[in-house]
Design a protein around this nucleic acid. Structure first.
Length: 609
DNA sequence: GCAAGGTC
């Protein structure tokens, strides 16, 4: 008997379906001589410190550097503390029984580093010795699954990938557990002051932005605006330059040849530039972009959006939610026209679905090379029943985005008019000529600035217009806004963009800080630790958060680059570089940061709340 | 009591 093990039930069942195996059992399916089972993500985790003999939280134990890491069954929190998750234990037992019967195992966990780790941890924990092969596919269409099975790889081909995954896991444990205990113990508070490769740089970003915002000194500057009149249609033009002093601006204002000063036609049109600009539709959603949009539109937290999306996924209404790709492959694209047709009766955007039906679709979101473990989020085409208002809102964002993504470009005309009246003034305006994808939600254009005119009258070069009004404008420079959930998620994805080193940046771009699946939980962790709080839509540090930030802000553990460095090394391990060299470096770093924090925490000032 | 990673 061959046993196929997937990362999650949905994939296990999908593969079983392709094989025509339909017999449902408890925790697996069987048919055609195969058995199909699954994990629920990570079933096993690196054991907690006490399982290596490090009892309690004690400076004597630090740094904790286990000789050999152990695995333990995933735990859940109950009123009696942490206990084995019974569902996980049950599934592990099922997997063990199946592996015992197996002649061969086929590994069908997600095609990536963590997918490999999920299987290997199970395999080694169960002390299984059966031979295994690897299925490596990035979409779960029938064709992709069949092709993957014709192309099974030897299990050992992925040993180096497992090594890199295991290193990632151990390194996070060593640095996180030790740094957390070191700072918590030395701070003298009895609370948990957690630190980690992902959470601490994130906290640092929030704190740095908060302090920058709070300490920002606004600069006053001045502008002059005039209002020319074209046959009764007025528009606004603003001085080409900004002025540092009111006097400079006043001088420019005084030179304006307006009607009240006796100039009947003092606005001379120097030039009119009008150029069309194509604005392509947005890409399909991945989890992060959807969380950002839901936060902007509905004020949902990243965690709420993920929960709602998980509900929709479990009801088979949307595809896999925890994806980091905004693209689909050609195989999935083949089903898109039929999918669009399903929305022709939708009350909000049925009209646009009808318009797209049979039309030539925009293929910007179609690129198999940019599909990673999972493709972008799409509706499945199943008809929703009795969704809650919030679920419906998320569902509509997924479906609406699909219509946008395959819609036509939006064509705008950007107009710039230069007017001479004493000095030069600029009027700019954007007119949407063909709305294209913008028809789906009829949203306002975010890019549009305050000074812009909705529409500008038709004027020609050389024309002279009366200037009917003028004004001196006093303005102030603004600080970068505080992070909210949407802008933080975006910053986490692109933390690499502020890194100069090209190779580091590439490594960061692939991973960012955290992963789509973990970012929502990480934000919740910072809230739970009382490091940050929500103020309206903003995320701001608490006193505790700022105190921790002050202690660690110059340390490596607070820098996003730490992840970039690790990723680079892990990638080398994946291509065969030495594991032990990296492990030694991590141990050395763990010793160093533990010592530093044991000292630094003593100087901490934290109010006990 | 603690990390980051995955998912019901």
């Amino acid at each position: 008997m061959k046993v196929i093990i997937a990362e999650k039930p949905s994939v296990g069942r999908e593969i079983a379906k392709v094989f025509g195996a339909t017999t449902k059992k408890d925790g697996y399916m069987e048919g055609k001589g195969y058995t199909f089972t699954w994990a629920f993500g990570h079933l096993l985790q690196l054991a907690a410190p006490q399982e290596y003999g490090y009892y309690g939280w004690n400076v004597q134990n630090l740094p904790m550097l286990p000789q050999k890491f152990k695995l333990s069954v995933r735990k859940v929190k109950t009123k009696d503390g942490m206990v084995e998750d019974p569902g996980v234990r049950k599934q592990l037992d099922i997997i063990k029984a199946l592996f015992d019967e197996a002649t061969e195992i086929i590994v069908a966990t997600d095609a990536g580093r963590e997918g490999e780790l999920i299987f290997r941890y199970i395999y080694y924990y169960l002390k299984c010795k059966k031979p295994f092969k690897r299925l490596w596919i990035s979409s779960q269409t029938d064709a992709a699954i069949k092709e993957g099975f014709r192309n099974l790889k030897p299990g050992s081909d992925y040993d180096a990938l497992f090594n890199s995954a295991h290193c990632r896991s151990q390194s996070d444990w060593l640095v996180g557990m030790n740094a957390t205990q070191a700072l918590s113990l030395s701070s003298g508070t009895r609370s948990v002051l957690s630190l980690g490769r992902v959470q601490t740089p994130t906290l640092a970003m929030i704190c740095a932005r908060y302090l920058e915002n709070k300490n920002f000194v606004p600069q006053t500057y001045y502008q002059v605006s005039i209002q020319p009149d074209k046959d009764g249609q007025v528009f606004k033009a603003v001085s080409e330059k900004n002025f540092k002093t009111k006097e400079e601006a006043q001088a420019v204002l005084d030179l304006v040849e307006d009607v009240t000063l006796g100039f009947p036609q003092g606005g001379h049109i120097l030039s009119v530039e009008a150029k069309p600009r194509k604005e392509p539709p947005p890409l399909l959603h991945d989890l992060s972009s959807l969380q950002q949009e839901a936060n902007k539109r509905k004020g949902f937290t990243a965690d709420q959006t993920l929960t709602l999306l998980q509900n929709l996924y479990e009801s088979k209404l949307v595809t896999y939610p925890r994806t980091g790709s905004r693209y689909i492959g050609d195989d999935v694209y083949a089903g898109v026209p039929a999918l669009i047709d399903k929305f022709m009766d939708h009350k909000e955007f049925g009209k646009q679905a009808t318009l797209l039906s049979g039309a030539k679709l925009n293929k910007r979101s179609v690129n198999a090379k940019k599909v990673t473990d999972h493709h972008a989020i799409l509706p499945t085409g199943e008809t929703p029943h009795q969704l809650s208002a919030d679920q419906q809102a998320i569902y509509d964002m997924v479906a609406g985005r699909m219509l946008e993504a395959f819609h036509q470009d939006c064509i705008k005309e950007i107009t710039k008019i230069t007017v001479q009246s004493g000095s030069k003034f600029i009027a700019s305006g954007t007119v949407i000529q063909t709305a294209g994808w913008r028809l789906v939600f009829n949203d306002k254009d975010e890019e549009k600035k305050d000074e812009e005119n909705a529409t500008l009258p038709k004027v020609t070069q050389g024309e002279n217009l009366p200037v009917t009004d003028k004004a001196l404008l006093e303005k102030q420079t603004k600080p970068k806004p505080l992070y909210n959930e949407a802008s933080l998620l975006k910053a986490l994805e692109t933390a690499g963009k502020e890194i100069d080193d090209e190779e580091l940046r590439q490594a960061m771009k692939d991973s960012g800080l955290g992963t789509p699946a973990t970012r929502a939980a990480m934000i919740e962790t910072l809230l739970k630790r009382n490091y940050i709080s929500r103020e309206k839509k903003n995320l701001v540090p608490t006193e505790t958060g700022l105190a921790v930030y002050e202690v660690v802000k110059h340390q490596q553990i607070a820098q996003a680059e730490l992840t970039g460095n690790w990723e680079k090394r892990l990638e080398e391990i994946r291509s065969g570089a030495s594991v032990s060299a990296f492990q030694e470096e991590i141990k050395t770093y763990t010793r160093a940061i533990t010592q530093e924090l044991l000292q630094a925490g003593k100087g901490m000032v934290i109010k006990v709340s």
